[in-house]
Amino acid sequence: MKILVCITHVPDTTSKISFTDNNTKFDKNGVQFIIGPYDDYALARAVELKEQHGGTVTALNVGEAETEPTLRKALAIGADDAIRINVFPSDAFFVASQIAKVAKEGNYDLIMMGRESIDFNGGIVHSLVGEMLALPSVSPVMSLDIEGSTARMTREIEGGKEFLEVPLPLVAGCQEPIAEWKIPNMRGIMASRTKPLEVIEPEKVEEGTTVKTFELPPPKGEVKLFEEDKIGELVDELINKAKVI
């Protein structure tokens, strides 16, 4: 089985976000980058599926040279090889077009992604790739098992879940508890240094959107504390001032 796992290179979940150049650029100063947490679930499950069924796992990122340590980490976790499409990932449609081309040429049985990136939060790249390749796409996937040429999955929906059967090939946007995050071991880290990492140049594609400027939300005011015997006053405030209950 050939599996493609698409990973993002994103600020660590505890990062403070700020911008430079008149709020037109993300400020990378002091920020640690990681594999997107959802992509990490996808990668972990991909490695497990490979262990069960044989085959290969290819990690793919659309990004500039700075993302290579993140791809190396995916190799250390268990991907066999990696591809970097050498371009800034500016827009969901643009990224999906790049991924779709590689996915098509590589004839993968399974294309795994995270349910969403934690920088763009679009939650749509998997569905875009699915439609571009006329393949089914399912997200957010909480469990995924392969039997022959069929995938059995559970998908989270509001207030519950769906149980699905889908023929391969397909695109899956993953989330927990599909697998436990894998921490690279020493052997993996050593091996990752020599595993192939191919850099390819992007397709010419017109973006659907461009960011004009970034903004930070206004800072939160001071919290208003109520003593335990003043709960009535709090309730008054919620009813009459905030008007939320």
Binding site: I17, I118, G208, T209, T210, V211, K212, F214, E215, P217
Partner: peptide, 17 residues
């Protein structure tokens, strides 16, 4: 306005076409 970085920021985004 598009919410990004999991609600920590927003992007004023031009939608083309």
């Amino acid at each position: 306005d598009r919410s990004i970085y999991t609600g920590k920021a927003l992007a004023k985004t031009i939608v083309k076409g």
